[in-house]
C-alpha cells in the first residue's frame, strides 16, 4: 500500500511538471509542447542535483515501462478514419512508409559516418 501511494505521489510530481510546462508554453507562446518543456525542466533539475532520481524513480519507471499503454486509446481512434485509407488515402500510408525509410536511412548514415570519422581521427 505504501508502494502504491509512493507511485501515485511520483506520478503527481511528473504531472506537476507537466502543468508547469503547459503554463510556460502559454505564457511565452512557445510552440514546443508543454510536456516536452516539462521533460527538459526535469532533466535540468536532475542535472543540477536539485531533484534526486530516487524521489521519483518508481512512478517514472512504471510510466516508462508501460509507455505504449497510454497511446492505445488515441490509437483506437483509427477506427474513425478507416474510410480515409480506402481509395486515394492509401497513398498517405505509402508516403508515411517511404518517409520513415528515408529518415532511418539518412539520419542513421549521417550519424554513423560522423562517429566513424571521429574514431579514425583518434586512432
Amino acid at each position: 500500500m505504501v508502494g502504491v501511494f509512493r507511485i501515485i505521489t511520483h506520478i503527481f510530481f511528473l504531472y506537476a511538471l507537466l502543468l508547469i510546462g503547459n503554463f510556460l508554453q502559454e505564457v511565452f507562446h512557445l510552440f514546443i509542447p508543454g510536456s516536452v518543456i516539462g521533460m527538459l525542466l526535469l532533466f535540468l533539475l536532475l542535472k543540477m542535483g536539485i531533484i534526486k532520481i530516487k524521489w521519483m524513480e518508481e512512478g517514472t519507471s512504471l510510466l516508462l515501462r508501460h509507455l505504449t499503454l497510454f497511446f492505445i486509446p488515441v490509437t483506437i481512434g483509427f477506427m474513425e478514419y478507416l474510410e480515409l485509407f480506402k481509395g486515394k488515402g492509401i497513398f498517405l500510408l505509402l508516403i508515411t512508409v517511404i518517409s520513415t525509410a528515408l529518415v532511418m536511412g539518412v539520419g542513421g548514415a549521417v550519424s554513423e559516418q560522423l562517429a566513424h570519422g571521429k574514431e579514425t581521427q583518434h586512432e
Partner: peptide, 30 residues
Amino acid sequence: LMGPAVVALALPLYRHYDMLKKYMKPIFAG
C-alpha cells in the same frame, strides 16, 4: 497519463547523458 509519461522521458535522457555527450556531434547531426 501520456503527458506525465513524456515528462518521465527525462530519466533515460539523464541516465544516458554520458553517451550523449561522447557522441554529441554525430547524434545531433543525424
